[in-house]
Nucleic acid binder design. Structure first.
Lengths: 216, 216
DNA sequence: CCGACTGTGTTAATATATTAACAAGGTTGC
DNA sequence: GCAACCTTGTTAATATATTAACACAGTCGG
């Protein structure tokens, strides 16, 4: 354990958490790194090493107690208390993100979804009303929200983010296909869906070229 | 150049492409690795190295011709011909993905969006009608589609993917929060939006803990 | 045409991440 | 309570990725 965990490790923790949630739902009480490997796609060695960064959570000869490990992971990631967040941009993607997290992600609480288009305001997603962006600062300040998901068109993203940072947001999950400039200390994770698709296409094309060259 | 490019490099190529598209739209003809660095967030050294994997595309003392480099990147990624793809699952996310790519991603052509729910069938996204999944095999086979985006609920994802692979799909962008089992040779990229959010929260909590410990 | 400058492409050095190997701890059956 | 068997946690070896350094090629002003 001890020395700080690297980015790659942190990215895998939520995967472990999800698998544990599923195992617990199926009343599995003990799990080995090998089974976790099958469920996650990462190697068993890597999983053991990842977990060892934060402590010794398993029992030699047996494996990991699912419930106990889940609790530890929640604490490590910081999900042991519900994180409040807002969604900016109530297009199809913003709505999808909001509804999905409300229904399926118990570790976060969406306290507001906002849109610049007044026509959207008033529409409901689950029990949550879409509100005009003008009301956003008050909500974020009052509830001391730190995390925002941004799903506005690329051309508005930087301005929106400037505003968010100005009223106390320190972490942004950015779905707009654009590089955001933020002050030191503000975290931005980019979730550019087009990039994922395009790099996937690279591998498809590699295969096709390989097939073609075999014909010679 | 020569020896094959690594995954990390491939993931950055679409970012370069997007930035180049933007520069060309603004009639910028020449760009240096330093400017690309500002626009992408990657270091200039890394950008030069990435591009050098595939050839020498720049001019020393000057920089890169935007139009020329864009053409090279398209060819490298495999986007020089429109890639056909299907979307399976016409929930909010599936609709968002479909509409976004139809409007903003000229490098792919969505040839069908399918949903198991008959109530969805007939609804239109842009000019594309949502169709029942029963019609999916015919479309994929006739048009020889190789790439699919899967945005169905997690519990159906594996079955859907089995079907897709059976009718010729070799690359899948998976939005369902589940590990997919696929035969050798089929590419799966996972775009789990919850994971991104949760690892972001990790960093927020790290900061907050740091703040707290400062008070002592 | 020459010297100062700019920015690429390549090679070397460093850091990060993954894989492998194994010792130590724990369990189970007899 | 001992022997055979598991599975973790740790340390060592390997591979990948990033950063730094710089030689080389081209431009520009005079």
């Amino acid at each position: 354990m001890s020395k700080k965990a690297s980015k790659s490790v942190i990215k895998r923790l939520p995967v472990y958490l999800r698998v544990l949630d599923n195992l617990i739902r199926r009343d599995v009480e003990i799990v080995s790194s090998r089974v976790l490997s099958e469920e996650t796609g990462f190697t068993a060695e890597q999983i053991r090493k990842d977990l060892a960064h934060f402590g010794a959570f398993g029992t030699r000869g047996t494996g990991y107690n699912t419930d106990y490990l889940r609790g530890k992971l929640l604490r490590i990631i910081g999900l042991d208390r519900q994180t409040k967040l807002v969604v900016v941009g109530a297009g199809l993607l913003g709505k999808a993100l909001t509804r999905y997290n409300m229904l399926k992600n118990p570790y976060v609480e969406i306290v507001g979804i906002f849109d610049a288009n007044p026509a959207e305001a008033g529409h409901e997603i689950g029990s949550l009303k879409i509100r005009p962006v003008g009301e956003m600062p008050a909500v974020i300040k009052e509830q001391q929200v730190k995390v925002a998901m941004v799903s506005v068109p690329a051309e508005f993203a930087q301005q929106v983010v400037n505003d968010l940072v100005g009223i106390g947001i320190t972490a942004i999950l950015n779905f707009a296909p654009t590089k955001l400039k933020v002050p030191e200390g503000v975290h931005v994770h980019n979730a550019d869906l087009t990039n994922e698709l395009q790099s996937l296409i690279y591998y498809v094309m590699q295969d096709e070229n390989k097939q073609l060259s075999k014909l010679h």
